[in-house]
Design a binder for these strands. Sequence first.
DNA 1: GCGACTTTCCG
DNA 2: GGAAAGTCG
Length: 457
Amino acid sequence: MSPGIFWFRRDLRLADNPALDRACASHEKLLLVYIDDDRKQPYDARRAWLARSLQSLAADIGERGGTLHVLAGNPDSLLPRLAAASGAEAVHVSAMQEPDADARDARLAAMLARDNVALRRAGGRLLTDPDLVRTRDDAPYRVFTPFFKAARPAWRHRSRVAPGRFRCLELPASLAGALSPIAAPQPGWDRGFWQAWTPGETGARRRLDTFTERLDAYPAERDVPAIDGTSRLSPHLHFGEISVGRALDAARAHGGNGADKFIAELGWREFAYYVLHHWPDSVEENHNRRFDGLAWRHDPAALDAWQRGRTGVPLVDAGMRQLWHEGWMHNRVRMVVASWLTKHMGHHWRDGAAWFMRTLVDADIANNALGWQWVAGTGVDAAPYFRIFNPVTQSRRFDPRGLYLRRWLPELALLDDVAIHAPWEAGHVPRGYPPRPMVDLAAGRAAALARLKSVSG
DNA sequence: GCGACTTTCCG
DNA sequence: GGAAAGTCG
């Protein structure tokens, strides 16, 4: 048997990795690589996570006597060189299930085939094959609930354990120059991330275990940003440190209302990838083209205030500061800050989506595009464009004691439980905090409704 | 054709 | 309670 190459991408785990299992079954020796083709990108939050996740994966592989080689360069040129130098007959990968990445795989497969090297894909990131779920009229779904009802019955999964044993090839000497671990960001702006997160397969497994124990409280606690009541699995799922099937299994084994709620959230993730598959343009363009005529505001100073958490609206600012500090924001608060940017401030959802892609450790093209278009009212699903979140109402409802606000806005910590949600109403805003919201709540709502009305009908 | 639809707000 | 849009079975 000739050796094989296993190319880790966004499946940074050993357990329940069908593509890795298949590679182990097909070859006596494997060359394990991660290829970093992202060096020219600005350093974003995901990259800080990736650096740690790869360290964790390398350590797990090291414990099994193997080596993970982290290379920098273009896979199109590195993989043929790796195959030629090692004598490998196949490159194994997990399917990405994103349009651009899948198209790239197809080109790469054709290229490798010319050297008699196979690109073998297995597994993937989803529970649903996007091409198999269609409406009665044989069209793709545009609404979540019917999609979910159609897709969910076919979800089945049997978690696999890590492959028992694999023997690793050393990196061919001619490729040694490409070795290049991913550096941590300078000067350590990611410090706050690691109080909240443990990247890697072990951290992901622990997170799932912790969450599963508290699944019964999930329906009530998931909407309260001061409580750690959500799964917090999103970055682990983004990097494939745990399989979505394993999360599904854990929820099903536990059962109950909390499990149902969580499985519906997994359903939204499936739906986001499904929509991206059928409408790849929805990353950049309004899904509903009727909104193309909307006049969006372009105000760099206002956008900057939103990004820094200086809008003068406490819940919005708390969320944006949590995002900067932790690389993550509670889902309830994501909806509020997104509504504020797209409705009250009148900015294009792309402005917000771009900032989230840069700052979130869980930033995922599919989920991000779906979420922003959903809030902006330009996307799939029923689009009640008149739905505009009131950030003060949301704050009082979901953070009544101001615990979340005080954690992220120390300058407001001394305000009482009533005033902290809308300090300008109390008349004395602490020094250092904007004296009033950058957009008046009522006027901003009215202006958004008027703008949206202008393109309706 | 008709009821149902994650996440709302205002009066 | 009404506003109010389009998809789905």
